[in-house]
């Protein structure tokens, strides 16, 4: 009972602060110099916030997950084809921004290659900026605005629940639930891997574009070393 009370309290606190943080981040973004001048982007931010603030019902989430697993689970050919996204949609988006199709492909290819090399342990991130960006991604992705299915699995309170219940006798329903989670994780491992490559390479390509467009250069400034050092730098 004591554990349950504390667990519920922590869950409510975590949910409250996650939402408060998201709201604050959205407000900051909405009021930024660039977006405050663009009603179209403000509309996107508002729509996104409204959508994110409405939790998905468990039934819808469960059925979506089951269908994805049934039709796509274990299908490595489909997951590999999913890896063409950056070359179809990502490169076109960069062309819209730069007007240079060949340059866009080069940038996408570079980003995919860099992510692949780091994943395979063949090299490190090519610049301190890239490393900083990927560290930010790794630390923030549990609250990713775009991760629909993962939001529940990545919930810190669920991890705490697992830790509290670990080693205790479990009911048949709990065992079945755990087994289904594992089957799903295994079946969708190819998709998740390719999606991670897509996401990281999209972030790198967009980041490099932003820096070249805005003329932002990496400078190791003393006042930036505080937050960076907390990320292992």
């Amino acid at each position: 009972m004591w554990f349950d009370n504390h667990y519920t309290s922590a869950k409510k606190n975590a949910a409250y602060w996650s939402r408060a943080l998201f709201k604050a981040q959205t407000k900051l973004l909405r009021d930024s110099a660039e977006i405050s001048q663009r009603p179209d982007l403000q509309r996107f931010v508002d729509m996104h916030e409204a959508n994110m603030m409405t939790p998905d019902p468990a039934m819808g989430r469960g059925m979506t997950k089951a269908a994805s697993m049934w039709y796509l689970g274990g299908n490595f050919a489909s997951s590999l084809v999913n890896g063409t996204q950056m070359f179809t949609r990502g490169a076109a988006e960069l062309t819209r921004l730069t007007g240079k199709p060949i340059e866009s492909y080069k940038r996408v290819l570079d980003a995919v290659r860099e992510v692949g090399e780091v994943a395979l342990g063949q090299s490190k991130w090519r610049s301190p900026d890239h490393e900083w960006l990927m560290n930010r991604y790794e630390s923030d992705k549990t609250g990713s605005a775009y991760d629909v299915l993962g939001e529940k699995e990545n919930d810190i309170t669920l991890k705490m629940q697992w830790a509290l219940n670990h080693g205790l006798p479990r009911s048949a329903a709990q065992k079945t639930d755990s087994l289904l989670h594992r089957v799903n994780d295994l079946a969708m491992i190819g998709y998740r891997g390719v999606e991670a490559v897509n996401t990281k390479s999209a972030m790198l390509a967009a980041f490099d574009h932003f820096r070249s467009a805005k003329g932002v250069a990496f400078r190791r400034r003393r006042h930036m070393q505080g937050p960076r050092s907390s990320m292992g730098r």
Partner: peptide
């Protein structure tokens, strides 16, 4: 919302593109 999620299931790539 559940019905919309079910209808929208696995259509994310197509709708996005």
């Amino acid at each position: 919302r559940s019905a919309a999620m079910i209808m929208h299931s696995m259509q994310s790539f197509n709708i996005g593109t």
